[in-house]
Design a binder for these strands. Structure first.
Lengths: 244, 244
DNA sequence: GGCAATGACTTGTAGAGACAAGTCAGAGCT
DNA sequence: AGCTCTGACTTGTCTCTACAAGTCATTGCC
């Protein structure tokens, strides 16, 4: 029994909500009732409810029973992670040119983000992404060694890394994206065909698996005249993200 | 004592990280040490640490001391609409300086985005947002006349427009945000205290109510060294992040 | 030196109890 | 009816305890 109680409890409630046993607007059992039902204490129950709240599935407040807000936050997860898939959906022709791939010790900052030790290896690659043959985005990706190994032998000019990794059984479960703006450095300028100092949209992404183990750190830079990032969110809902 | 202990504790740790007392890569005190320092039990300490983890400020794992990952606070997705609320959640002091407010016919492009006729009026305002008294973001907002009217009589240097509008019964139900990067123009440079041409994160936002009527169009520009935008997404299924 | 085992330390999980603070329906009054 | 007030119920917060599981430096052996 490796799975903690609060996780199995959250799974159970999720399947009830998604399966329709609890429709939108329905009230969940109170914490006390859940405690009795699962023969546990309030700790795990509250942890599970907090997880669902974090996913936007339920709402509520102090003194108020939790209520189902949405039955499925299921966003097309692939479109968050796969440039290739997103481009195909919007009718553009995606392309890529690998600039560099290496197995090395990453910078301390990157190593810390990935929870790596100083002497751990990582697979780092720099790849230019194209939309309709125009430079659109430059990726600087770092994969934990065990995850990135298969990339060393693959033809990275041919297809989607996301597809390749999932085919190898890698579980890309969740990601955190941080957006800001930076000035193009020399490499950006050369590959994206802009002047040094040109404003670029920067996306820093940390991806991890279901166990919470970090798998990938990436820093992507978009030419703002070719690609942007769009998010739609509703009150109480979760939101979806696309790239155009 | 209205504020819960875990919140003041999270605030304290945030200010330590932000203030430089704990740089990137530094190890935080262990939970036991924090318990002693603040004369509390592990519950509030763990709640505070979970909040920081959720914001991406710290990392760590079982048996491993929490480590500072980043010093720039990330924005939780739920607080997308209110800069004020977002700032408070991350322990910063929000501020604002109104630069201009006007009732006029908006540009054709803005009018089109808001579905306005050419002779419709709109309330437009330009406002500088501050974090801890430092220029962080410049808003150029356009409200449909019926929505924006109350703003003409309000003290816009005092509080949150979001709070003011909801108090007037305005239903800000959903929004679409588009992010890219631009170079600072003359006004950006002056108010945000950067050089002309400096890269800025641009957010263009269209907000509408539950009936699908467009209410607001805004173009915000962030100083990337002061504020960033963070989104976390998970694949529907098992496991998730910890909570607030 | 190199290496594996040990043990102290750390975080993750769980149980139980207590009180504070908020919600909500129903009783009872005007 | 409309109103307030009460009281049961619910969630939020905090304490204390205990053990499991992972990390890490040190010890001691080869």
């Amino acid at each position: 029994m490796g799975t903690p109680l609060h996780r199995t409890l959250a799974d159970e409630l999720r399947t009830r909500i998604r399966g329709g046993a609890l429709g939108v607007g329905a009230l969940l059992p109170s914490e006390a009732e859940l405690c009795r039902e699962f023969s546990t204490s309030r700790g795990p129950v509250r942890q599970a409810l907090a997880a669902l709240r974090d996913e936007g599935l339920i709402g509520g407040g102090q003194g108020r029973r939790p209520v189902v807000l949405d039955t499925v936050p299921a966003q097309p997860f692939e479109s968050f992670l796969s440039f290739t898939r997103r481009a195909e959906l919007t009718g553009h022709v995606p392309g890529q040119r690998l600039h560099e791939i290496a197995l090395r010790h990453p910078d301390p900052a990157v190593a810390a983000a990935l929870h790596l030790e100083p002497d751990d290896y990582a697979v780092q690659l720099i790849r230019l992404r194209l939309l309709d043959d125009r430079p659109a985005m430059l990726e600087r990706m770092t994969y934990v060694e065990t995850v990135g190994r298969p990339l060393l032998d693959a033809d990275l000019n041919a297809g989607s890394i996301y597809a390749l990794l999932t085919a190898h059984g890698v579980d890309l479960h969740a990601a955190r994206h941080t957006f800001d703006a930076v000035a193009a450095d020399a490499l950006d300028a050369e590959l994206l065909d802009v002047a040094v100092g040109h404003p670029l949209l920067r996306e820093r992404r940390l991806t991890w698996n279901g166990a919470g183990e970090t798998l990938e750190w990436s820093e992507d830079r978009y030419r703002p005249d070719v690609a942007a990032v769009t998010i739609t969110n509703t009150r109480g809902g979760r939101g979806s993200l696309t790239r155009e």
